[in-house]
Amino acid sequence: MAEPLLQVQGLGRRFDISRPWLNRVLERQDRQFLTAVADVDFTINRGETYALVGESGSGKSTIAKMVVGLLPPTSGRIVFDGQVMAGTEGASMRALRRRFQMIFQDPFASLNPRWRVGEIIAEPIHRFGLLRGSAVTNRVGELLETVGLSAQDAEKYPHEFSGGQRQRIAIARALSSKPEFIVCDEPTSALDVSVQAQILNLMRDLQDELGLTYLFISHDLSVVRHMANRIGVLYLGRLVEEAEGKALFRAAHHPYTRMLLDAVPDLALSGRRRQPVEGEIPNPIDPPPGCSFHPRCPLVMDRCRTGTPPVIATQTGRAACHALTLAADV
């Protein structure tokens, strides 16, 4: 039943953020690296929505970029439908590329302002040679109607549309190569809530109709809860907890997840008691040793300051926390 479509194994990415060579020599500095993603494992099954949630510096966008091949990983590997993704060219890679797509955060930057909407949507069709001639125009019209716009809109330029309409155009472009898997990088965080609702509903409808699989990246826990079947929580480049969708919100295991949940404004005015959030995210260039969450953690112990916590199974998924390991041992 659960057939894995995307497997991410031991994924890591380091960025060289050193100053230029000449400055380093003159100022006697060493090379500097930023570890954006470290040792991340997860599997996405066909037809499900897997969400990665985290704050700034969590590495969620870096993972998205590596999954679609915009950035090469420095360690680990990504397996798409049994094929290891490596390199950027070659016929097999080209065939693979047709099967995944990406939707971006900022609909004002994701559409080329000099292109007509029709040309934008048709680019993947041309790139993969899927259709020719008037068939392309028809398909573009069809796609525009699928996302709730009209076929005549193909003649217009992006600036003639609102943010929500532009995001629909971006979705139409993503669908045009008939992909199975779409990486959605904060697809609604630049939109107003009522528009967000339209886009989220559309994305779910499309998933049901076309059997799509989503990797959904977001910082918004309420949106993630609404969309995801399974959720991975990232903190400073590491996966700290993974759980089945709604279960995460009933019983969060990792103290960071609990803190995140407590930080979400209480719209229901339920008056639930919440632990005040402490501190800020440390600078990822120089993360704390051991468990990188330990300076903000209410459960901090000596071993958290030295050793990276192992991943252990929880009732709802898995988590990486010394306190949980200790509780499991007892």
Binding site: S162, G164, Q165, V193, S194, V195, Q196, A197, Q198, L200, N201, R204, L221, S222, V223, R225, H226, F249, L261, V264, L267, A268, S270
Partner: peptide, 22 residues
Amino acid sequence: GLMGSIPTLTQETDRLVQIPGA
């Protein structure tokens, strides 16, 4: 409509309320 369109941490909704148009 606005309130219904906001996903929350507590309510169970399959579809968010959608205000048509913009």
